[in-house]
Design a protein around this nucleic acid. Structure first.
Lengths: 220, 220, 220, 220
DNA sequence: GGATAATCGAGACGGTACGTCGCGTCTTCAT
DNA sequence: ATGAAGACGCGACGTACCGTCTCGATTATCC
């Protein structure tokens, strides 16, 4: 029928996606709205459902309809929290605690680097890792959510790696004039590459050989 | 008169997509099919349309309906050639001749490697490169088409790189005991990584620095 | 995205068509459904469109796609109300008020019978009459909708006729031992027969001659 | 692609449908064409297949594709003999020999009439009868094929009935001034009516009661 | 404590695209 | 020229999700 009697203006800009998707409960608005507040349990149920669906059928299996049904929730409720399917998928993945923890510090920064690479490789090799990769490649790269997503899963790790390399450099373990940024891409890029292409497995042996060979380029 | 003694079984699986999509004219069956042969012009028209749509709106813009209309072709005809949207997209990209040609040989294999990396990086940085990457990530990795696709665009280049590195090794330009496979992933992985993450640009300077630093790790 | 790996289970059979198509507001469920209620305006718009299409191009002109577009409605909405094309066509025809009204009572039941037969013949001879007949013949006879349809357009008239004949019988105007059911089929059957076969026209003269001759068989 | 390079004129008018569909082998052209002659076996195979399909799934089950496959024949071959689906269906039904034979003459024409009505009713009550009825109602009434079809199955019987009634009239068994055409529609119409509406069965009892009651109207 | 307001489950709605089926025409090779 | 095979343009089918909208029914805050 489509007879917009009331061509109402979009009610109000709700800070739904950005903050929520980032999973930052910190930025909770101090001003308490008037109506019934949103239930965080519902938020969790939705993300849980989304995660389950992705585990079962990959990112393509995550449909808003399925998420809503699985979570026992109305579709509009899902849309109240996130603006579209991608946002839900990313939020679901980001909300999961299973992240490569910053490795407990070894004495040597280079050993710590290897340790961290091993942790990252494990995450990547999991079912979820596959989903994360797919999401990263599929999403519109310029979106805020996409940026947050990439940072959360990859660039943050890469930054940790940078710190370790710089530390090693200052400790005199690496040669002068090395290109840190390029080195980081050699490391994390190789991991992603195997993940995406599947031409060879990702195991501890590979990761160790990788770190070793990269470091060698940073030494002599 | 062909009295159907056997009430006929389901027509038989037709090898439509696989061979055709792979673009391999080699596997031309010696037995000339009985009916009207498929028109290669139509195949081309479809792929041309698919390419145009991807150029305009990315992989998401490639819908079977749009492809069919644009190509002046019925939807079922498109499905006669390829089983789904992904397959069409991949075939379209693969069918394009614009590939980084094996660089005209330099005297030194390592110089040739750098040259090839530059060529690959240019392809990746283009609109089409973005599409290729998205397709790789989105496709079911186990499909035949997906494998062909990855090989065509990436692994084939990687193999060329392997040849060059091995040549350099035999020429004594590299140290003994290096890990070629890992080195290759360092190189091509870094490229893909920047492409996907967008945390830094891909330019000639980067590529040169990358090759240099990797090679340094392969030297003594 | 958008590759439904698991075709999911068939949602559940919804009792959409039966009640609605029959146009019986009587069977209104006491339990108010939970979601947004179906809009009767939309129902009407669809049926109006269906009627228009049949008027223009006969039953074959009624395609779901055309109905949806004409009604300014999505295709799935049409399917929410009726399960297929036939059901829509029947509902459209039945929803129309233009029916041969029970004739204003004459003094004599046999005169009233003749009057009613004339009314029915007029309906049959119209464009819509042709459509109704075609629908009756084309539909699966065992369907609920089909039964409702036949009853609505034909058997209900036939029942009215039965009442009149029985009244005349009780008034002593007809002989004893007559077979009412057979008589009714003689009357209405003859009408339909000419309609379907087209070997002769249906006009007032024919109807009057028909009634007269049938009644003669019912007299002594 | 649809690029009619040769906007060829439709080759030649072939007298395919009319004569062939009527099943009249009599009108075989005396001029023997140049190429390979059409095989009558193929014609039969097609009609046999068509009949089988209708038996299994009603008139809607008869698709050209299914007919061709079932008959072990190419689609164009089917179209060489008949112009469309309806024509094939009608030809298939008409080609069948199982017709109510002109009843072996009884002494009385009215007894013969009853006999013939019984035969017709049996045909109608069969699976095939249902199909015939549906075809009649569904077909465009003005087509040549449709006319032939109606004549073949119904109007021809009706004519036989007319002969019998007129004979009875001349023998003085019926009253003067009766309306033969109307009487015929009373008889055959009632049969068709029950067939279409399904409100009551068609058995010998019904037919006999029908004939009796109609004849009564033609007597006193 | 009663009005007000946003939330929630449910599901109808206008769309867009999906992948399939059948039509009737065409093009090919073999007979 | 006929025939089997089957590709082709076309149009419609019925379905899946999208993201938006309306319902009645909860909860909260504010007056």
């Amino acid at each position: 029928m489509r007879v917009p009697v009331k061509p109402v203006v979009k009610p109000v800009l709700k800070p739904n996606s950005a903050a929520a998707a980032a999973g930052s409960p910190a930025a909770a608005s101090p001003v308490r709205g008037r109506g019934r507040p949103r239930s965080p349990q519902i938020r969790d149920a939705i993300l849980r459902a989304a995660r389950a669906l992705m585990d079962e059928a990959g990112p393509a299996g995550l449909t808003m309809e399925a998420v809503a049904e699985r979570a026992g929730v109305g579709k509009p409720t899902v849309y109240r929290w996130w603006p579209n399917r991608h946002a839900v998928a990313m939020a679901a993945l980001m909300d999961d605690a299973a992240l490569p923890k910053a490795a407990a510090r070894k004495r040597s920064p280079l050993r710590a680097l290897e340790q961290q690479m091993l942790a990252v490789s494990e995450t990547l090799a999991s079912r979820q890792g596959r989903n994360v990769t797919a999401m990263i490649a599929a999403a519109d790269p310029d979106t805020e959510v996409a940026k947050a997503f990439r940072h959360h899963f990859v660039l943050a790790r890469r930054s940790e790696g940078r710190a370790l390399i710089e530390e090693a450099a200052q400790a005199g373990e690496l040669r002068a004039g090395l290109d840190v940024e390029v080195a980081l891409d050699q490391l994390y890029g190789a991991l992603f590459f195997r993940m995406l292409m599947g031409h060879a497995g990702i195991d501890a042996g590979f990761v160790r050989a990788l770190v070793k060979q990269v470091v060698r380029g940073l030494t002599a």
